[in-house]
């Protein structure tokens, strides 16, 4: 394949675009209190938030995998009335402001919520203001990334592979496990990565639904928000941590999966 050069105008605009993405980072790096960084980052607030962020983002990714993969498969393959409505519903969190998603969660799953109240009466469980609330809020806004990756990958998969598996004695579960999922592996991995990244950075739905309690629901983005009011150096330090973690995950994992393809 011959590599074609882009017109100069495109190159110039692309460089400006790149600059657009780097300016915020430069701002952060320029103001970073480098010498105080170890102290700032080892504070209890930051460590609590880091722990909660890792647990909740991985938890939300796991929950998304459990529910989002089946949803993607259904949207891609099953024929049922109202499928486009269902797809719209699943994609809604992508366009809604997360704070609206959080508000909706509060009225549904909150202590006085439509579903939250009976859950609370039967089990005594209170979802908001708990780590479960953080995970649910993050999963709601992050899962659509997984659902659409799985759906489009399965749509593009030649159904004859699954047919071949069936003639070779594989039932539906084995076909899913041994053929369908491995064959959409790269898309699945990319979808999980995006889901995790979105959950890791989730703010609006979390603060609305789960609140901002240090050590219980205060994740890194929430901690930045609080610190910004009181202690700018801590806010910058936490932001740097988030940038470092996100960027390394995106570069390392993305590169591996894309090359594997």
């Amino acid at each position: 394949m011959s590599r074609r050069r882009n017109p100069l105008g495109v190159v110039i605009l692309a460089v400006i675009g790149l600059f657009f993405f780097t300016i915020p980072l430069i701002g952060l790096l320029a103001r970073a209190p480098w010498s105080d960084l170890p102290d700032l980052l080892s504070s209890e607030i930051v460590l609590d938030a880091l722990r909660l962020s890792l647990i909740s983002s991985l938890g939300a990714t796991a929950l998304s995998a459990l529910l989002g993969i089946p949803l993607g498969l259904m949207l891609a393959r099953a024929e049922f009335p109202g499928r486009s409505v269902l797809r719209g519903l699943v994609l809604l969190p992508l366009v809604l402001p997360p704070v609206v998603a959080g508000t909706a969660l509060l009225f549904a799953l909150g202590r006085r919520g439509v579903i939250g109240e009976p859950i609370n009466e039967v089990t005594g469980l209170v979802l908001p203001f708990s780590i479960w609330g953080v995970i649910i809020a993050a999963a709601l806004v992050a899962m659509p990334f997984l659902v659409i990756s799985v759906e489009s990958a399965v749509r593009n998969l030649d159904p004859r592979f699954e047919g071949a598996a069936a003639t070779l004695g594989a039932g539906k579960w084995r076909t899913l496990r041994a053929v369908t999922l491995p064959m959409i592996g790269p898309s699945l991995a990319a979808g999980l990565l995006l889901t995790w990244a979105r959950a890791f950075g989730e703010f609006g739905a979390t603060i609305t639904f789960a609140g901002n309690l240090q050590g219980r629901t205060q994740t890194l983005p929430l901690a930045v928000f609080v610190a910004l009011e009181q202690d700018r150096d801590t806010a910058i330090a936490i932001s740097l941590v988030m940038v470092a973690i996100s960027l390394s995950v995106l570069i390392l994992l993305r590169d591996r999966w894309w090359r594997a393809r």
């Binding site: 004859r160 071949a164 598996a165 070779l168 004695g169 594989a170 491995p182 064959m183």
Partner: peptide, 29 residues
Amino acid sequence: PPEQRQIGVVFQDLVLFPHISALDNVAFG
């Protein structure tokens, strides 16, 4: 259902599973 029919098929364009080795393709059934 197909998985209980015991019919050996060489499909048009073969439809070998691309993500596993030749050996595992044959061992699949």
